[in-house]
């Protein structure tokens, strides 16, 4: 009984950690701009593919350059960091193309939902043209697990080592980000812009630079998440990030828009709730996430850990 409970907890934490990571990417952008970046799911896919290529993976038969690959592969952890950086840069590009022009004109934030969605459509379809739709698995020899067993037993419950690693990296990223936001000058500036852009501007903070920083960070988080998931379950095709994007959206609101601890709590809660769904009812699993969201919104519109604010769109 205890074992089963522990297993459920582990299962929930493993998927919840990923949800939290996705939601965190949304949160960063939302806190400074008050909009949701719908290209986040596509950046998630992009990160996975970048890591694959950097590790020396070859493009499959249906891609644009069949059989092409880098002459030498990097070790997983290095590829992971570079891919995160690459996704961050692409996120910056998305900001320049889909967000900045709207901001300069003072257009409604609503428009950014659509432009970022368009950017996501472009990214995913470019990925498909380049890489084809087939699934890819990372070259295992150079994988993250070198030397570790595939599965770890914790008090009778089983978890795949890669999932545990994923959870650890997610936690590290989350803790690092929170500390950075709390402690460092850059983080404080970012939070100041998130609180009140006008006042921050008066204090001499370059809010434009902070927006760009938020995009790079959120893109890097997406790239990190996509790569880790890719390591765990391979890359099932260019659309795979989109599903995580939708779930992340629910988590984002569940925890409270713009709240970092909220995104984490929301992710873990969602993961646990899903792990608790019995097999007989698992067809309804996806509705559960949104039903919880629905209930939370009605009882506590600002989310579990969000601030109560009146906002307009």
């Amino acid at each position: 009984m205890i074992e089963a409970l522990l297993q459920t907890l582990l299962n929930g934490a493993a998927s919840g950690g990923v949800y939290a990571l996705v939601a965190l990417g949304y949160t960063l952008v939302f806190s400074v701009l008050g909009v949701i970046n719908f290209a986040q799911g596509a950046l998630f896919s992009l990160g996975g593919y970048l890591t694959y290529l950097l590790m020396g993976g070859r493009i499959g038969v249906n891609g644009a350059l069949p059989g092409w690959g880098l002459p030498a592969g990097l070790p997983f952890w290095l590829a992971l960091l570079l891919a995160a950086a690459g996704s961050g840069l692409v996120a910056l590009l998305v900001e320049r193309v889909a967000f900045a022009p709207l901001r300069r004109r003072g257009a409604e934030p609503l428009l950014a939902l659509i432009t970022s969605l368009g950017a996501g459509v472009v990214l995913v379809n470019l990925l498909q043209i380049l890489m084809g739709a087939e699934g890819y698995a990372f070259p295992q020899e150079s994988g993250a697990l070198a030397g570790l067993p595939e599965v770890l037993m914790i008090g009778g419950a089983r978890i795949r080592t890669i999932q545990l690693l994923l959870l650890l990296v997610c936690s590290a990223a989350v803790v690092g980000l929170s500390l950075w936001l709390e402690r460092s000058r850059g983080g404080q500036a970012l939070r100041a812009v998130a609180e009140d852009a006008t006042t921050a501007q008066l204090l001499g903070i370059n809010s434009d630079a902070m927006v760009r920083l938020a995009f790079v960070l959120s893109g890097a988080l997406a790239g990190l998440g996509g790569s880790l998931i890719g390591m765990s379950v391979s890359l099932p095709g260019p659309y795979f990030g989109i599903g995580y994007g939708l779930k992340g959206l629910a988590v984002l609101v569940l925890g409270g828009l713009g709240s970092v601890p909220g995104a984490i709590a929301g992710g873990l809660l969602m993961g646990l709730a899903e792990a608790l769904v019995p097999a007989e009812a698992s067809g309804w699993r996806d509705a559960l996430a949104f039903a919880i969201l629905f209930a939370v919104l009605l009882l506590r519109p600002s989310g579990l850990l969000g601030r109560r604010t009146v906002d307009k769109v």
Partner: peptide, 25 residues
């Protein structure tokens, strides 16, 4: 409709997903 702005948008997305899963099941 007690919700506003992006909260309303996301609550309605939740509604869409709930209806979709219900029709599926």
């Amino acid at each position: 409709l007690r919700l506003r702005g992006i909260y309303l948008a996301i609550a309605t997305i939740a509604l869409v997903e709930i209806v979709r899963v219900a029709i599926l099941n």
